[in-house]
């Protein structure tokens, strides 16, 4: 496990500079006017970022309203009989619900939950596994679809949320297996 960790951490440190070097040198080798072409490409950065703004504002505002109202507590009370049936620990529910909604929110919940139940307890390991194994689905959808002006997202959200739910079940299973 330690060797694996070292390899990945070296890779992630080297990847960016190596990629940049390789792309640009290879481009120059292939007679691409590197600076001129790069500037052309870079111009798009501004447009894309600005195009995302309305999508991101509306998405984050609705999530912020949901969070600030304390509706999550109510929601947890409603779904807990169902999750009890599935054998899911109630202590990890806030994390499971917050994870797809908000990155900073779920970071806070992970920290609080670990403080309350211990970092190396079943619950502590479960919430950190959950945090590490999925993305903030709503944010990713808003940014990625926003960048190309997609409004009809079809089955993207149900797919993302179902995958998050499966990640949660898998985390419960695998953490239970190793502990």
């Amino acid at each position: 496990m330690d060797i694996f960790r070292t390899i990945v951490s070296v890779l992630s440190a080297v990847a960016i500079p190596a990629l940049m070097l390789f792309f640009l040198v290879y481009g120059a080798f292939r007679k691409v006017k590197v600076y001129e072409v790069a500037v052309e490409g870079a111009k798009e950065g501004f447009e894309i970022a600005v195009r995302i703004i309305p999508y991101l504002v509306l998405m984050l505002v609705s999530i912020a309203i949901f969070r600030a109202s304390g509706a999550m507590d109510v929601f947890i009370t409603l779904v807990s009989p169902l999750t009890d049936l599935l054998g899911i620990p109630a202590e990890a529910l806030p994390m499971a619900i917050m994870r797809p909604l908000s990155g900073s929110g779920s970071l806070g919940i992970m920290t609080e939950t670990m403080q309350a139940y211990g970092t190396d307890s079943f619950i502590g390991i479960l919430v950190s596994t959950l945090y590490g194994s999925t993305e903030t689905t709503f944010y990713v959808l808003a940014v990625y679809f926003g960048a190309v002006g997609i409004r009809n997202t079809r089955h993207a959200l149900p797919t993302g949320l179902l995958a998050d739910f499966i990640a949660f079940l898998a985390a419960v299973f695998f953490v239970g297996l190793v502990l």
Binding site: L19, F23, G27, V37, A38, G41, G45
Partner: peptide, 8 residues
């Protein structure tokens, strides 16, 4: 990155 990508 979009600049670098365009070169690639």
């Amino acid at each position: 990155w979009l600049g670098v990508m365009r070169v690639a």
